[in-house]
Amino acid sequence: MNILDIIGPVMVGPSSSHTAGAARIGQVALKLLGEEVRSAKIRLHGSFLATGKGHGTDRALVAGLLGLSVDDRRIPDSFWLAKERGMDFEISGITLADAHPNSVKLEVMSESGRKLELVAASIGGGRIRICEIDGLRADFSAEAPTVVVFNQDRPGCIVKVTSRLGSAGVNIATMQVYRDERGGHAVMVIEVDQQLPEGCIGRLEQEEGIEKVIYLCME
């Protein structure tokens, strides 16, 4: 947090958690998918479901999925904009286990068939946490440049990734590792201090045992 979180952000109202945070979650989902969103299932949980309509949470999420930022004046008209750009979406309620009251589950798909499932929470002041990616647990804010690595859960994967980053001159700020079951799929969430150099992702993806690498940089 810094003084521009105190005076700021510039945002479309009415609520930093229910509107600005929601738009940011949509934006992060779009970045994580890496391609334009063609269809989206939006499942609102808790307070997002109860007061989301009045706060424009629905419109803000759709706006974010279209790439609109939290201060974009078109947020209130995002449903119409989605129609114009040919993005289908469907909004409903869901009860997520152990979730923050302002949570949403997103299932998005691109034209080429790329898919992503995401659970995220808006934790106040427009800040967010990503809690789940493709069914695997995670916990990051998307504020720092973040590398998300999906890999097979077996020895040696982590060291390959960290040494690649190290030799690219990228310093790791935080790192989390999650997996679904022993020897199954795992995910590494790595927040880094520097932006990743060109080509780094491609080289990471070629490493054995690495299934998919996503690089998220919101700036």
Binding site: V10, V12, G13, S15, D71, R73, I75
Partner: peptide
């Protein structure tokens, strides 16, 4: 409240 652009200070 009408979804116009404002500056949160400290909140919306």
């Amino acid at each position: 409240a009408c979804m116009k652009r404002i500056v949160a200070a400290p909140t919306a």
